[in-house]
Simulated assay, not measured.
Amino acid sequence: AARNGSFLGDSYNDRPSSVQREEEMRQRAGDLEADLARTDTEIAWLANEIKVEEIRFADLSEANITTPVAGRVWEMMTSPGEDVQAGQPLLKVLDCSGAVITANVTESVYNRLQLGDLATFEPNDGGELISGTVVNLTGAAGAPANLAINPDALSKEPYRVTVALRDAAARACTVGRTGRVVFARHETAP
Rank of each mutant, 00 (worst) to 15 (best):
E128L: 04
L91M: 15
M77Q: 14
D95L: 04
I101T: 13
D95W: 00
R112E: 13
L91H: 06
M77C: 06
L90M: 13
Q88V: 06
Y110E: 05
N104T: 10
A58D: 06
Q85C: 07
T67S: 15
N64H: 07
T106M: 04
L94A: 15
V93Y: 01
D59N: 15
V105I: 12
I55N: 13
Y110K: 01
A119I: 06
V73E: 13
E107R: 06
D95R: 02
T102D: 11
M76T: 11
T106F: 01
S61W: 01
S79R: 03
E75A: 12
I50F: 07
P80K: 00
V105G: 10
T78N: 08
A103C: 10
D95F: 00
G126Q: 08
P80D: 02
N111W: 00
T66W: 06
G98K: 01
A99K: 03
I55R: 14
A119Y: 02
L90W: 08
V93C: 06
Q114L: 08
R72G: 15
L60P: 00
T106Q: 06
G71A: 08
R56F: 09
R72D: 15
V109P: 01
R56V: 12
Q88K: 06
D125Q: 09
G81H: 04
R72C: 10
L118K: 12
N124Y: 06
T106C: 08
C96H: 01
P89I: 07
C96Y: 01
S97M: 07
E82W: 01
A58R: 14
G98A: 10
L115Y: 04
K51C: 02
E54G: 06
I101R: 04
S108V: 12
L115D: 13
L113F: 05
V105L: 07
I55G: 09
T102I: 05
K51G: 06
P89A: 12
I55E: 15
S61F: 02
P89G: 13
W74Q: 14
P89W: 02
R112Q: 14
V109K: 03
G71D: 05
E107G: 11
E128R: 09
R56S: 15
N124A: 14
F121T: 03
N48P: 03
N111S: 14
D83G: 10
N111M: 07
P80A: 00
A58I: 06
E62A: 14
S108T: 13
D95E: 05
E122G: 00
T102M: 04
I55C: 04
P80L: 00
M77I: 09
L129C: 03
A99F: 01
V109H: 03
V69K: 10
V100N: 07
G116I: 05
L115S: 12
F121D: 07
L90Y: 08
S108R: 11
L94P: 05
A58S: 15
G98F: 00
L129D: 15
E49C: 07
I101W: 01
V69I: 14
A63F: 05
